[in-house]
Simulated scan of single mutants.
Amino acid sequence: MTTRSEVIDDARKDSAQRKQGGAAELPSATLGGEQKRSLEQITLLLFITVPFLALLAAVPLAWGWGVSWLDLGLLVFMYYLGCHGITIGFHRYFTHGSFKAKRPLRIALAVAGSLAVEGPLVRWVADHRKHHKFSDAEGDPHSPWRFGETIPALMKGLWWAHIGWMFDEEQTPQEKYAPDLVKDPALRLISRQFVLWTVVSLAIPPLVGGLVTMSWWGAFTAFFWGSLVRVALLHHVTWSINSICHAVGKRPFKSRDRSGNVWWLAVLSCGESWHNLHHADPTSARHGVMRGQLDSSARLIRWFELLGWARDVRWPSQSRIDSRRKPQVADAA
């Protein structure tokens, strides 16, 4: 088992290699390669701020004029399509290999995750694998404990883990952390086409809204709720797993970091906020393993398995779960 000191040493070596240009790189593995250039930084800022402003405006607009069932339906459908694309596809399948998928499902998950507008597939996976290697230690791309444990340091760290880390100049070497994806031409193409999938994701709601209502106003309101508000909500729920779930929450399982279970994020995060078990057993296809812990991602993986689209699913056995419990909560429900 890798010790904490070995993890820290690896982080320092990795950082030194990046600064010296010694890490292996594959040019143009994904959109923008491994370094986020000025244009991409500006684009990232727009994709964060514009949907967020729409999210802030959503409450008074809904209070004053309401929201149609069509717009609400588009928001919910597109939200959970992208959310499960991230949780099942980008995270449990591509990052951790929690199950094996037939080729059509593999491609569908890559596209569905891209519709969440959270960055190119290869970069997302590389960053997350690095996060697990150095979780809450030096080298973790987005630990809220980066600046210390005082209240001011934690507040700064929460901001960093939630949003700030995405603007960091030093990026994760993709060929080192995601060589399997880089070598797959189809997945590399989907990753490079991130801008295309972003346009598709933002265009679907207004297209449907406009056609159903046969009006430009219907297209506009569908774009506001189904595109902008939906993207902002999904972004902040996903980022909360990086920030909130590494700062607070119950920790019934043994892990070498500060990952916690945050129940009130479970439905919106499609089961990802049962984060303590995930870090205790990263390859598990189910994160919500205790009674009452809703995990829609695990349920969908189970359906994929029954349909024959997925196989070799790493379902956690009771003995495996018990072996990861902390002694003092071994008898808890």
Rank of each mutant, 00 (worst) to 15 (best):
W145S: 04
W145D: 08
R146F: 05
F147A: 04
G148S: 07
G148Q: 08
E149K: 06
E149A: 14
E149G: 01
E149T: 14
I151L: 13
I151P: 00
P152L: 12
P152V: 02
A153C: 05
A153W: 06
A153S: 11
L154P: 01
L154C: 00
L154R: 15
L154G: 00
K156Q: 12
K156T: 08
L158V: 13
L158S: 11
L158M: 13
L158D: 03
L158E: 07
W159N: 04
W159E: 00
W159C: 08
W160Y: 15
W160T: 03
W160D: 06
W160L: 05
W160P: 07
A161K: 12
A161M: 08
I163W: 02
I163V: 15
G164E: 08
W165E: 09
W165D: 11
W165P: 10
M166S: 01
M166K: 03
F167I: 04
F167P: 12
F167K: 10
D168R: 14
E169H: 03
E169L: 09
E170R: 15
Q171V: 00
T172P: 02
T172Y: 03
T172L: 06
T172Q: 07
E175P: 00
E175K: 13
K176Y: 07
K176C: 02
Y177L: 06
Y177S: 05
A178N: 02
P179C: 15
D180K: 09
D180V: 01
L181S: 00
L181K: 02
V182L: 10
V182D: 06
V182M: 04
K183S: 12
K183Y: 04
D184V: 07
P185I: 14
P185L: 08
A186F: 12
A186M: 04
A186R: 11
L187F: 00
L187Y: 03
L187S: 01
